[in-house]
Nucleic acid binder design. Sequence first.
DNA 1: AGCCAGGACTGAG
DNA 2: CTCAGTCATGGC
Length: 232
Amino acid sequence: MGAAKTPPSRRTLLTIYRRLLDRFGPRGWWPADTPFEVAVGAVLTQSTAWANVEQAIAALKRARALSPRRLLGAPIRQVARWIRPAGYFNLKARRLRALVAWWARRGDPVITTRRQPVAALRRELLMIYGVGPETADSLLLYALGRPAFVVDAYTKRIFARHGWAPWGASYEELQGMFTRRLPPRAAQYNEYHALLVELGKTFCAKRRPRCHACPLRGVGAVRLEAGARMVY
DNA sequence: AGCCAGGACTGAG
DNA sequence: CTCAGTCATGGC
């Protein structure tokens, strides 16, 4: 199998960040008008292409249903119809209801969670049905402006392919790789994750990675030896 | 015609 | 805890 995995140094992490920023420019994430829309999108985008999520969000807006009151007032069946383009619509309708119920109970979390420590708030989010590690961190970072580093499938794939992390690394291991070396600044975490997603979509596809045009070419040691598991 | 997309839950071993 | 099965539409 591949050589021993060497975690990237702080310097390497910054080099990666710089290269991505130079190539792609600021991504301006999250693509949404309000924090509540971010929250809705965070659930809808689970294992789903963003183009599909956009259609679902548009449908919600068209129906004037993109608010806690409207979403909680509508029958679960109706919600499922609105978000149909996002896939897994029955499942996501339930998850959405759970998250929106929390949002309403909290009464605009952007304000009410301001004094709450990130770790405690993260644990609270993880209690919500349908909110796992990535969705919790996305909510913290992109809806609530907290310094939570988001790890997704692209992050795992990119760092495994470059030999910076084992293919089976857990979410917390990957996240710790960043948070243990970078200062907890929401602005940078925001941009870093958005850039990794852009890199993933553009150059690090699951089946046909375009390693020759990749902006990270030459950084670290790309390990794409034949036989390597190409999952994640 | 497949293959895959900005995951999480569930039940089994 | 690890792991396969499940959920489903739309774009390439």
